[in-house]
Amino acid sequence: MAKLDKKAVELGIDLRVDVAGVSFSNPVMTASGTFSPQDSSAYYDLSELGAAVTKGVSAEPWSGNDLPRIAETYGGMLNSIGLENKGAAAYIRDTLPFLSRYDTKIICNLAGHSVEEYVRVAEMLRDCPEIDLFELNISCPNVSEGGMLFGTDPAMAEAVTSAVRKVVDRPLIVKLTPNVTDITVIAKAAEHAGADAVSLINTLMGMRIDLKTRSAVLSRKTGGFSGPAIKPVALRMVWETARAVQIPVIGIGGITKGTDVVEFLAAGASAVEVGTAALMDPAAVVRIKSELIEYMAENGFRSIAELKQAFSV
């Protein structure tokens, strides 16, 4: 039984949601790459989270891209981290024991350069009892092999999803890239291959040029565009996908306040992940959840299902 939000309980509001057969205390989760258990816990109690979605982890350590990796844009930002991570062994040794002290669900985001690497990291982590769900990252735009390459081709998306599906017995979420002509095609491919849910969107490919240095701001020239500026695009894609697949959709993209969550739920999302907002305010996830509760109280919604039913989108 997941920890219930005290304020919600006092107001008679049930924030629980079920996604892929797992019950979450509330629909607000972190987004991978913008959350670190040790560092985020300095700002809030991680038990407040619907789920802790951890940074993409690969079988072996990855050192990521050269600096600069960050550029601010109008109402958003570009990043080109390149999935730097310490690898699955360090994840098992450091991240999971720390996170398991908190009363929240753990979603482990998996990264790889090839089907074999995705399978390998899944094999290394499949028996970890702390992990509640896996999220397959086939949407990172900042690596030259793997990542988004798998998320832009339905056949490859299906191949990697079904390969990892065979390895893990925990529910599997596939995280999708918006950098495609029709995201529903990829979502359906993932569903067909056995995904239990899809999460979207990962970042949009973007670029910035520095007029002083007369070169691209990011060392890798292009990067992933995120932040409040991308919310309308994310919302549209979540809405399209929720109508196209039977499995649950987790909404991601530009969420910075409680009413943004309401919009994503209204568009068909079962839960949401909050990413860039955590860079704009370390405790954003908790504030956003609290704002969602206030919105529900003001509008007389006693559950997430009731809220969703009130909208006709």
Binding site: G33, R69, I70, A71, L279
Partner: peptide, 17 residues
Amino acid sequence: ESRMACGYGVCLGCSTP
């Protein structure tokens, strides 16, 4: 000195060799 995003360790925007 480094360009940073979060400033508290989560984003790895300033991760340097």
